[in-house]
Design a protein around this nucleic acid. Structure first.
Lengths: 156, 156
DNA sequence: AGAGTGGGTTCTAAATTGGAACTTGTCAAA
DNA sequence: TTTGACAAGTTCCAATTTAGAACCCACTCT
């Protein structure tokens, strides 16, 4: 399967990966959440080549995750900002951060901490059920075919 | 930056991506959560080449996300199962599924539904604060440097 | 006029991936 | 006693993708 075919799968994981499933996209988005917005700034922070960066930014804009916003005229220059669709990726990033903190942290501890502004606590992100608010884990969920499942491939 | 350098970054996102940041790993893991365990079954479901599949499974085992369990002797054959570390990736998958459901679903609706066994409801996974249980979004958190942040690069 | 800035594009070499065929034990049927 | 099938890989070559470095363009500043 090629990249271009991935978004046609009847699977939300595959469709999501068609947007963010490469080495750089999520690192670019991580920096977006840290309020990085300009081409040169991304380049300096990421260790990505200008070539790749230009290409990824273009793809993320096309996917509707980032938007290109002019911040000066003559010469016209643009910066890259998260759209609402992009901001919604926060949960994905947080889940990855939490997994990395739990399973990949070095002896010095986690690289970053998160403060919940609503309650003031340094917190861990936890996946919860929208109906009852209880924790969701691999062991207390069941997967069912939804309306968008293909007849011949009614998997996730 | 090359793949091999990614896990040395002082960032939990980068470290997590060093394990699951390629096109196939998360699709393999998705199938693991759907109780797929054998080489041939992965191959048939994924559209991946045997070559790539063998390589990815090896890497995921080395990363401690999957374990190789013999299921018969003579000839000795192994199947692949999620470890606890792998089961913890459930939150990442769920976050991606939810984003895909919200932003990439076709006209026929989401391909899969999730039932929370503790309460019986078909639910959406929501990121919550471990301290107060409230919702966590991009707009109500603040990121702080943690103990594992490098002096010269105290970012996420 | 010359240097600097921000945001790219173009080029080639290196790394990664896809595709198809081949290998290794083992059993079971012809 | 070949022959075939099965499951789980491995090997090899071609195609695609990426890295690395240099170049380009539209301005502004000195």
């Amino acid at each position: 399967m090629r990249w271009a075919e991935l978004d046609r799968e009847a699977c939300s994981v595959a469709r999501t990966l068609s947007v963010i499933g490469d080495r750089w996209s999520l690192l670019i988005l991580r920096d977006c959440f840290l309020r990085v917005r300009r081409f040169e700034e991304f380049e300096a922070r990421l260790g990505i080549t200008r070539h790749r960066l230009a290409d990824r930014l273009k793809k993320l804009v096309k996917a509707g995750v980032l938007k290109r916003v002019p911040y000066q005229e003559r010469p016209r220059r643009y910066e890259y900002r998260l759209t609402e669709k992009g901001l919604d990726l926060n949960a994905v990033l947080l889940a990855m951060v939490h997994w990395g903190d739990t399973h990949m942290a070095g002896k010095r501890g986690r690289p970053a901490l998160y403060e919940h502004l609503d309650c003031g606590a340094i917190f861990d992100p936890v996946m919860c059920c929208s109906a009852c608010g209880g924790k969701v884990t691999a062991r207390n969920i069941r997967i069912l075919a939804g309306p968008g499942a293909l007849p011949a491939a009614n998997d996730a």
